[in-house]
Structures are given as structure tokens and as C-alpha cells.
Design a binder for these strands. Structure first.
Lengths: 215, 215
DNA sequence: GTCTATAAACAGATAGAC
DNA sequence: GTCTATCTGTTTATAGAC
């Protein structure tokens, strides 16, 4: 199942440094010296292992895809047949995605990297789409269709799911704005729970409204 | 009323180039030579007019604030007293913000600059918050409170409004993902209308759900 | 594989003529 | 205010010893 083995040693340390620094500062603002220092490696190691700084970026994108795949597999849900089951699974997924996007554990460290690649239309954008955005969205569409009684791949359903995803994503991107306006020092576990609760509440309202119009 | 006069000549051209290039590529990825070329100015003009590249960034943030203020004044809404009026005004605002964030006219050219400053925690973040995020959010909270019968500055209301704003913002940030999954070549006027329609539909469902719980 | 030393290009900032 | 020319530091990439 695990086709690509995780990198090791200096190679791994450099990729880790890349994911962190590229995510925090952006690609252009990060120098190879800084990357080497962060990884505890020599400056020449980047050229040796990846050919160039761009090569490291590509390797980071690959590792990012690997971790997303692992996270997606770990979050593989239960089978659902009824509308009630689908709704419950949607609740579970919203909570899981809130933890992934806003939490600080495991794979979520790569979220800033993902957002930078998205903004830059970098080489990681393909991994973001095929490894995360598309499968997640497709899965949510299937559940939405089951829960609301609509066609899962209908344009309206796909659009509705994006409005759901958007609610989650914004709390990561607009984090400084949200924290300031809410009077929060930061968005920790308690705040993440509050956010998830509210989005689940919205989700239920949206599903009920859809169900009402499509009998 | 207009305290700060708009800049002119070379100064203005450089700020315009900064807003465009900083927004498209990011601050670090943009060189002063590129800025000068884009503005049709000399390389030394940046140091002369703004002291440094950072000075230009600051001036861009200022100009950004000016335009946001103008856009906010232009969008100053009608007075609302009843729940129905507040809801109608919310509909109007969602449509207006969708045009501002997703459209290509006027002030919306500065949206990429805003998002970069947000990601970098740059000097423009203060203008983003006090000039756009905070007043917009406060206004939406007031209307939400009126429409749903809740306390406008209650924590729940503020959080709910962020979930509304997030739906809009995501279609800008995740534009490449959305367009690809929806099968759209780009997000034009027709698509923007569709998006606004869906978010307004969600808004109504959310307001009705809130109204149900707080009699 | 890892290191030092260095090359070659580029960055931002400045001096001084006009 | 605008220009050319240049200074100084940093960037990425490379050559070659170990």
C-alpha cells in the first residue's frame, strides 16, 4: 500500500525544514542557508540531494502529498446508507477537519505549506488538489447527497459543499483577524471545538433547507 | 472628509505597481527593478520617494486602506429597523462582497495584496483589520442580530458571522481548486452570481435556525 | 555523503551629474 | 525629480578536497 517510503537522514531533515520554513515565510523569502541551518545540514547538501532550491520545493510537495494520503487513510470513514448516518458522518468529518486545519498535531503542520503553494500556484498545487481537495470534496458531496436527498455530483451540491469547506478554511487563513475580533489569545482546542460546533449547526440548517426543496 | 489625498505621478505609479506585484508574487519575490519597470520609473525612484522597498510596502498598505475606506463608504447601506429589512440588507451585502472579492473591478484589484499581507503578517494587516475586517464584521453582526433576534455582539453571533464571511472568502483563496472541481474556466460574473445565490440560501437557513432557538 | 571555498548573478541602497 | 553608474552584501549553484 505504501508505495513511496518516507525519506531519512539529512534528506528528511531538509524536507522537514522546507515544509516548515516555506510554509511560515514563503518560498522566495527563505534562503538555502536558512534551510540548511534549520535542518542541521551543510549548505551544499540541498544541491547534492535535490539539485536546487526548486528541487527541494518539489520534494516538499511530494512529502506533503504522502502525509495527506496517510491522513486521509487514517480518517477513512464508516460506510453510510441512510440519511441519518450520512449526517452523523458529516458531523464527524467537520470536527476532524477542524482539528486538522486548526490543530497543531501531526499532519496539520503542513497546512501553511499548502496555503502558500495555493497562493503561489506552486508545484505543490497538484498534490493539494488530487491528494486532498478533490477526494475530500467528493466524499463530502456523496454524504451531502445522501443526507439532503440531492444528486451528489450535481452542480448545486458541489457548490454547497464548498461553502461548508470555506467556513472551516477561513478560520485558518483569517486566524489573526478572527482571534482579534473574538478576543481570543489564540485558537486552541477549546476554540476549535466552539468553531466546529457552530459549523455543524450551520450544516444541519443547510441540509434541512436543501431537503425541504428537493423531496 | 477625504483626509489623505491620493498620490500622483511616479509616486502613484510605483504604489500601483507595488499593490499589483506584491499581491501577485509576494513581497520577497518582487525586486525593486521589477517594480520600477512595471511603473515605468527609474530604479532609484523607489529609494527617493519611499526611502526603501519596505517604505513602498508601507505606502501600498496606506493606499490600500484609502481604497477600502472609499469602497466601504460607497457601500454604506440603508438604515434597518425590522428583521425583514435586516435580512434583505444582509442579502445585498453578501452580493456586494462577492462582487468585491471575486470581481475584477476597482478596489477588488487590491484583494491579492490583502491576502498576502494577511499571510505574511505584514504592515498592511492593521489596515486590513481596522479598515475592512472589523467594520464589516461589526456591521454584519448588527444586521444578524436584528434578523435572527440575537444579541449582535454576543460571542455566538460574532462566530456565526465569521462562518458567513468564510464562505465568501474561500471562493477567492481556493479559486483554482473551486474552478477545477466545478469545471469552470474561471470565476466570472455568472459564477459569482451563482456563488452569491448559494450563500444567501445558506444565510437564510442559518438565520431561521438561530431564530428558532432564541425566541 | 559531507565539507570549504568560491564563482557568478542578483539583491537593495547610494553618490553625484543633470 | 530623474537619471547613470556603482557600491556592498547576499543569493544560488558549483568545484574539488576529504
Amino acid at each position: 500500500m505504501n508505495d513511496i517510503p518516507p525519506p531519512e537522514g539529512t534528506r528528511r531533515a531538509l524536507i522537514e525544514a522546507g515544509l516548515r520554513l516555506f510554509g511560515q515565510q514563503g518560498f522566495a523569502a527563505t534562503s538555502v542557508r536558512q534551510l540548511a541551518t534549520e535542518a542541521g545540514a551543510n549548505i551544499a547538501a540541498i544541491a547534492y540531494h535535490f539539485g536546487s532550491k526548486d528541487g527541494l520545493r518539489l520534494a516538499c510537495a511530494g512529502e506533503f502529498g504522502r502525509r495527506l494520503g496517510a491522513a486521509m487513510t487514517a480518517a477513512s470513514g464508516t460506510t453510510t446508507a441512510t440519511a441519518a448516518e450520512a449526517r452523523a458522518e458529516l458531523h464527524r468529518l467537520v470536527r476532524g477537519m477542524a482539528g486538522f486545519l486548526l490543530g497543531d498535531g501531526g499532519a496539520s503542520e503542513v497546512v501553511p505549506f499548502m496555503l502558500r503553494e495555493l497562493a503561489d500556484s506552486g508545484p505543490g498545487i497538484e498534490a493539494v488538489y488530487t491528494g486532498f481537495a478533490e477526494p475530500t470534496h467528493r466524499r463530502l458531496c456523496a454524504l451531502w447527497g445522501l443526507a439532503a436527498g440531492t444528486d451528489p455530483e450535481d452542480e448545486a451540491t458541489r457548490l454547497a459543499v464548498f461553502t461548508l469547506v470555506g467556513q472551516l478554511m477561513y478560520f485558518r487563513i483569517g486566524q489573526p483577524v478572527v482571534a482579534r475580533r473574538m478576543g481570543w489569545a489564540s485558537i486552541g482546542a477549546a476554540e476549535t471545538g466552539q468553531i466546529a460546533d457552530r459549523i455543524i449547526r450551520n450544516l444541519d440548517a443547510m441540509l434541512d433547507a436543501d431537503r425541504g426543496t428537493v423531496p
